[in-house]
């Protein structure tokens, strides 16, 4: 069983926890992640979801003598969250940790490197940044229009509106369930968006890398 610990920005990307049943309801990014993992012939996967609030609560970080390398280029605290997710991944014996953050107006590399530095600070080697450019909806647009995916990151249109328009054209509802369906039916091997390809490559590399917990992942 491959344990993946995953955290994102909100309900519409990685997913959410149903607090009545305590069940994780995966969002489109988790579904895409699962598709990538299955693409590499790994099918026994379990996802542990950590909300942003959970990451803020634990572990508590304090000022002190231990100076962790901190990359705070964007000032959004991505490295802190990655550090906390990395700590949780170690403690929960997860094989891979995924932190999803939209690149938005920031350069992809700033967010990507910030998240990486957080995982390094937690000494967790199997941390993977998922950084859609400019935001997670862009990857769903790619799923709908794989042929246009190579140019999506240069598109100036708001991705939420673009996705909505594409769904309206197809006479499909603009709902979270629909987004999950789009992710579920995505032909990931056709997507050319550089940020998605980077995520796919990173995941592949980490899935084949012996886990920090020492358990390793059987190929």
């Amino acid at each position: 069983m491959i344990e993946i610990i995953i955290s994102g920005e909100g309900n519409s990307d990685v997913g959410k926890k149903d607090y009545l049943t305590n069940q994780f309801i995966p969002g489109p990014i988790t579904i895409l992640t699962d598709k990538i993992i299955r693409f590499f012939d790994k099918d026994d996967v379990n996802y542990q979801f950590k909300s942003r609030l959970e990451l803020k609560r634990y572990p508590m970080t304090l000022k002190g003598k231990k100076k962790r390398f901190k990359n705070a280029a964007t000032g959004k605290g991505h490295s802190d969250l990655a550090y906390k997710l990395g700590c949780l991944a170690k403690e929960n014996k997860a094989h891979v940790a995924v932190l999803m953050r939209d690149a938005r107006k920031n350069q992809f590399l700033s967010v990507y490197n910030e998240i990486k530095s957080g995982f390094i600070a937690a000494t967790f080697e199997n941390g993977v940044p998922a950084v859609p450019v400019p935001e997670s909806e862009a990857w769903l647009v790619c799923c709908l229009e794989p042929k246009e995916s190579g140019q999506i990151e240069n598109c100036k249109t708001d991705m939420k509106k673009l996705l909505e328009n594409k769904l309206i054209k197809r006479r499909l509802p603009h709902t979270n369930d629909r987004w999950r369906d789009i992710a579920d039916n995505c032909m990931i091997e056709l997507i050319e968006a550089p940020s998605f390809k980077q995520y796919k490559n990173d995941l592949e590399q980490k899935m084949n890398y012996p886990a920090a917990s020492g358990r390793g992942i059987k190929r």
């Binding site: 572990p59 508590m60 970080t61 304090l62 002190g64 231990k66 550090y83 700590c87 000494t123 967790f124």
Partner: peptide, 15 residues
């Protein structure tokens, strides 16, 4: 002991 690798001593105590 293992947590000292990535947390400060007081952070471990707090957590």
């Amino acid at each position: 002991k293992d947590k000292l690798e990535y947390m400060g001593p007081g952070e471990i105590f707090a957590n």
